[in-house]
């Protein structure tokens, strides 16, 4: 896609929301997002300090919603902190903890703070977290949550059918895991999310680049890359130990042995730098893949490295809007 100015984009009538992220995509830039995991406590500094580190190098910041089912500050509250810093948040929302009343209510709450992006997820099972004995809700699933936000935004209606006064102005995203099984339905599953109304996709962390490119090839075959903005998920490895842990313990993660071997091949104190190098190399390779619209850099508790990754990948400076 060739670059367009904001004025050209506005004139085209293609903008659906006030989201900055949407504008970046539709102007033809490769977008860059990152994430802030809210803290296990009520100190807002845990969010704002992380955001300070990355704010000049990303277009938007995701706030995770009790990730790995561990109880944390709410993603909505974290988004509000980001918004108050003048930043662009992406509200992550899982269907594990809230029924359709609470989900719609939080969507309106987010919209009331002019939070313009949302990522719809089902969420890790509670057995991974700190409340193993708790109930899960799953009144809706992630696809149905996408439908719900789109309906609230586009039709101005609640699920129950009533009109919404000032409907939410939210750009809707979803996750995709090209590496989960069964592989043959990974692309049909993306198609399903698009049919439900997903406008952008953030993928699972990519380490198996060959498999990811094969997935992208199948995505293009069906023309799905023209219907949705796909952001490749990147997480730099801090060590060979982390790579092994991700391979063996994290559900739905595909870490090839070469990745572990390369990290193990350098001395321990240099593994972190090797991990950053590998991440940068991967971004540079994937930038050339048709249908990739940006990168979602999840540097888990390693936010200070995001600027280096973005700069070295040739994604800096970020467009000003």
């Amino acid at each position: 896609m060739s670059l367009r100015t904001l004025d050209e984009l506005k004139a085209s009538g293609e903008l659906r929301t006030s989201s900055k992220l949407e504008k970046i995509f539709k102007m033809g830039h490769l977008a860059v997002t990152s994430e802030c995991g809210p803290p296990r406590g009520s100190d807002p500094k845990a969010v704002t300090e992380k955001a300070e580190m990355i704010k000049n190098h990303v277009d938007a910041i995701n706030t995770t919603d009790n990730q790995t089912a561990v109880t944390r500050m709410s993603s909505l509250a974290a988004c509000i902190h980001l918004k108050q810093m003048g930043l662009e948040p992406v509200l992550q929302m899982v269907t594990r903890d809230r029924n359709r009343i609470a989900l719609q209510s939080d969507i309106l709450g987010a919209a009331s703070f002019n939070i313009n992006n949302m990522l719809c997820l089902s969420g890790d099972h509670q057995s991974f977290g700190d409340c193993k004995q708790g109930q899960n809700v799953h009144d809706l699933d992630s696809m149905q949550l996408i439908q719900t936000v789109r309906r609230m935004r586009d039709e101005g209606k609640f699920l129950g059918g009533d009109d919404i006064k000032r409907p939410p102005d939210i750009f809707v995203g979803a996750a995709a895991n090209p590496f989960a099984d069964p592989f043959e339905i990974r692309v049909p599953r993306l198609a399903k999310k698009i049919a439900c109304g997903a406008e952008f996709i953030q993928t699972q962390c990519i380490y198996n680049l060959d498999k990811f490119e094969e997935w992208m090839r199948r995505v293009r075959e069906r023309g799905l890359h023209e219907k949705v903005f796909i952001m490749a998920g990147m997480t730099p490895m801090k060590s060979a130990g982390m790579a092994k842990y991700m391979k063996n313990r994290v559900p739905g993660m595909d870490v090839p042995d070469e990745v572990i071997a390369r990290l193990s091949g350098v001395p321990k104190e240099k593994q972190a730098q090797e991990g950053i190098d590998m991440c940068v190399e991967a971004i540079q390779r994937l930038k050339e893949v048709e249908g990739i619209s940006g990168f979602h850099i999840m540097a888990i508790e390693w936010e200070e490295k995001v600027p280096e990754i973005v700069e070295r990948s040739g994604l800096y400076p970020r467009p000003q809007i």
Binding site: R96, S122, G123, D124, H125, S127, F128, N136, H138, D141, S142, M143, Q144, A175, A176, N177, A180, D181, P182, I185, R189, K192, Q204, P251, G252
Partner: peptide
């Protein structure tokens, strides 16, 4: 395990559920 009506979720691996490697993924 998540009652996903449009599955499988991202935790499905090698035909098994993310919560237990002995449990078949229903969506698989």
């Amino acid at each position: 395990a998540k009652r996903v009506m449009n599955g499988p979720c991202g935790g499905s691996g090698r035909g098994k559920c993310e919560i237990n490697k002995e449990l078949d993924c229903a969506w698989q």
